[in-house]
Computed example of a mutant assay.
Amino acid sequence: MHMPGVLMHWDDLRIFLTVAREGSISGAARRLNVQHSTVSRRLLVLEKSLGTRLLNRKKSGYELTSAGEELKHSATRMEMEIFDFEGTMGNQDCLLAGELHVSAINNMASTVLMPMFASFSIKNPHIQLHIEVSNKYVSLAERQADIAIRLTNDPVDTLIGARLTTIASTVYGGSAYLQQLRGSGESPRWLGVECCGFHHDWTHKACPDHSYSFFVDDTLLTVAALEQGLGLAYLPCFMGDSNAALERFCDPDPLLDLGLWLLYHPDLRHARRVVAFREHMLSQIEAQFALFEGRLPRMDMKAPAQGPG
């Protein structure tokens, strides 16, 4: 987008780009950690300097005008050039600084990954690390996050990154419930799990009549329900094995293994913050492979059954 005689500041373009991606001024203000009024004011200044409207207000948020669409493409190219410049500075003794947005799965971000995030933040105090939990798709191309940590065996082929480790899973229950179940010979009671597609599908296969009386939509809720003796459910081994109130109902099935990936857009491959975070996570997770792969011994574990069926 070429506007002769128009001087545009990168801070204003960055604000506009964030509004375009978030779809609202309030969403952009939250992401940028500034006041709503600041975003509105800077947008008005930008539109006035360009002499054209960039956004139209709709009931569902904001929609880009044709000029806004053109400016978004230009601003995105500028943003990528800044990241490329960061990459060329990689061999120089310069300070790691700036924002880094990481989207991670809630049950991992709030438990086993948090010490890793904390140590990265302590080691790099000038990086503003934003941890955003989501089990859903985020568009890295639209910069809804810089990095996504995801469980998948089929990462999106337009992204790059690193497979951090393998996550093993199996069926868990509360210790008292499993003791009662083994003694009675009754059919197991299953939790209706709707936290993710993996657990939902595995549970439906293990409990074909779908006779659930209690439902949960978050893995941390699953743990709490299992602790109350409400039935059986699938959990990643790093959660189930580290909880003294739970026991394995059966051995992990290798067919349920999932890859834990750290993914980012190819345009960020030279960004120093991204590279530093990737190397940090690879190093931290390598030290805990046994935990993630379900190979940590548990002295209190009873002999598991052969399968959930």
Rank of each mutant, 00 (worst) to 15 (best):
L95M: 10
V223K: 05
H204F: 01
L32D: 01
L232T: 05
R150C: 01
G231R: 01
R248A: 11
F83C: 05
Q179L: 03
K302Y: 02
R248V: 02
I131V: 15
L7K: 15
S110C: 01
L246S: 02
A233N: 02
A145E: 09
P155R: 14
P188K: 12
C94H: 07
L129V: 09
G259W: 07
R42N: 03
S134C: 09
D251K: 13
D154N: 08
G192H: 08
G197H: 10
K136T: 08
S184F: 05
S213Q: 13
L64H: 04
I15H: 05
Y137S: 11
Q35H: 14
G294N: 02
A276E: 04
L263W: 05
N153Y: 02
A75V: 01
R273S: 04
Q228H: 03
P155C: 09
G185A: 13
F292P: 06
A118G: 02
I285F: 08
A168R: 06
L46S: 02
E279Y: 03
G192F: 01
G294K: 06
L159N: 01
A141L: 06
L43E: 03
V133E: 10
L291M: 12
L263H: 04
L291F: 07
R182C: 07
D146H: 14
R298C: 06
G197T: 02
D241C: 10
L129Y: 01
E247N: 13
L191V: 02
T88I: 09
Y264S: 05
S24N: 06
F292Q: 11
R163N: 09
D12A: 08
P236Y: 04
H130T: 03
E22T: 05
V112K: 07
K72W: 00
L263G: 02
R57E: 13
R53P: 03
G197S: 08
S187K: 10
G240E: 05
E79Q: 12
G174E: 10
P297W: 08
L263D: 07
H101V: 09
K302A: 15
L140D: 09
P155L: 10
N33L: 05
C207K: 08
E132S: 14
M301R: 15
K48E: 04
I15M: 08
P208D: 12
I105F: 11
T88C: 00
L164A: 06
R298N: 14
M301E: 15
L129E: 11
V45A: 12
T170I: 04
I160F: 05
V193F: 06
E142G: 08
S184P: 00
S169A: 03
M78W: 11
L46A: 03
S211I: 00
C237P: 00
V102K: 07
L17F: 04
I122H: 08
V274W: 10
K302G: 14
E22K: 15
H126G: 00
L232F: 07
H36N: 13
R273C: 02
F198P: 00
S37A: 11
G240N: 12
P208E: 13
M80H: 09
D84H: 15
R30E: 06
L181Y: 11
D11L: 00
G5A: 10
E227I: 08
Q144L: 08
R42L: 04
G192L: 06
L159C: 03
G161N: 07
R150E: 09
A162S: 14
E132H: 09
S121F: 03
G161R: 07
A168L: 00
M114L: 07
